[in-house]
Amino acid sequence: MKFGIVVNEGPYQHQSSDSAYLFAKAAIARGHEVWRVFFYHDGVNNASALTEPPQDDRHIVNRWSKLAEEHKVDLVVCVAAALRRGIKEENLAKGFRISGLGQLVEAGTKTDRLITFGD
């Protein structure tokens, strides 16, 4: 099946980024396609290239970038939510792109299941 995933919370603050990532990995391992992950609300902070967690912690942002690279997952950050929170092209991590909310609607129409992770 073709999956879309929505992430509504920032990394480290809330478990939703971790849950979404582990779900995406499991879906791919199960032979499904994760077509797009859409980042909304504080979820846009998952795309900050300025993120520097302590060395003994997971790197949530890099983990997404790697997933995008290895499995062609489209990581889309909502432009309106991103601008409100200071996420721009200049501090956007690898593998992410900034686009409009239409991409979220499309993640609903073009996938078999859309799963939301948030608070």
């Binding site: 099946m1 999956f3 509504n8 582990l22 779900f23 990995k25 499991a26 879906a27 391992a29 199960r30 499904h32 078999d112 299941r113 799963i115 939301t116 992770f117 948030g118 608070d119």
Partner: peptide
Amino acid sequence: VDYSGFVDLTTSNKNCQSWL
């Protein structure tokens, strides 16, 4: 269930909803 079981639940049901 583990994460794999989570994935299977989303495919065995025709739709889903997260209660945020």
